[in-house]
Design a protein around this nucleic acid. Structure first.
Lengths: 111, 111
DNA sequence: CCCTCATACCTAGTATTTCTAGGTATGAGA
DNA sequence: TCTCATACCTAGAAATACTAGGTATGAGGG
């Protein structure tokens, strides 16, 4: 699946995978792939800029892990980031409901 | 709700409302608002360019309705457009499933 | 030892899509 | 007559993901 459908929702996905514990960038890409059942195989050029943006916005914080020779930057959710995650989760649910109503047609009646 | 979350999905919504019969542009905007339960209140500057794009792509066709003094351009789904709608409906369902898996967390198990 | 591949990070520029902010014009109702 | 809803349109701005590059380490095979 092309991540283009993701426009506007990738922040939610990144925050969601980090809600279960810190991960470094590359591991976030793998987590998105695995947790989505291979649906989201996002290029690094998509994910790294998102992480930088989320960190600038104060939703993530990062530390360089120098324990191995290979440099790794580990991201974690901040307090505000966790709040934003909950807001975005709720917004996602509303969005899905709204699209569903339109797509199912006017005859469709969820109860 | 801001239509920004729609990025990449608005085509599906427009095709879906036209699946139940032709409508002119302004009525499409109203149909999206009503069928979504007021969630999508899209500016004309968003919808008209989409209609033009979908027509250029052969998914919609339009006729000018000169019956009233007020000019109206009525859009209808073409054969290929109906096929695209089905493809996009399926893609939407996969997308929702994939996002759901990521957002619910790894412990979540749908059966 | 060398070569390749997976890991791990990054950025600049491009493409696409929606929104903002205007513009024009008709018809209905106060 | 004046205002508002209807009804169409476009140009440029903003946001966001992708492409296509770049650098460097570590593991494993030949």
């Amino acid at each position: 699946m092309r991540g283009e459908s993701l426009k506007g929702h990738l922040d939610l996905l990144v925050l969601a995978v980090l809600a279960d514990g810190p991960l470094h960038g590359y591991a976030i890409i793998e987590a998105l792939r695995e947790r989505s059942g291979q649906a989201f195989d996002l290029p690094e050029g998509t994910v790294y800029p998102v992480l930088h943006r989320l960190e600038r916005a104060g939703r993530l914080a990062s530390d360089w892990d120098a324990s191995t020779g290979r440099r790794r930057r580990t991201y974690r959710l901040t307090g505000p980031g966790r709040g934003v995650l909950e807001v975005e989760r709720a917004a996602w649910n509303e969005f899905v409901t709204a699209v569903g109503r339109v797509v199912q047609g006017p005859a469709w009646n969820p109860i």
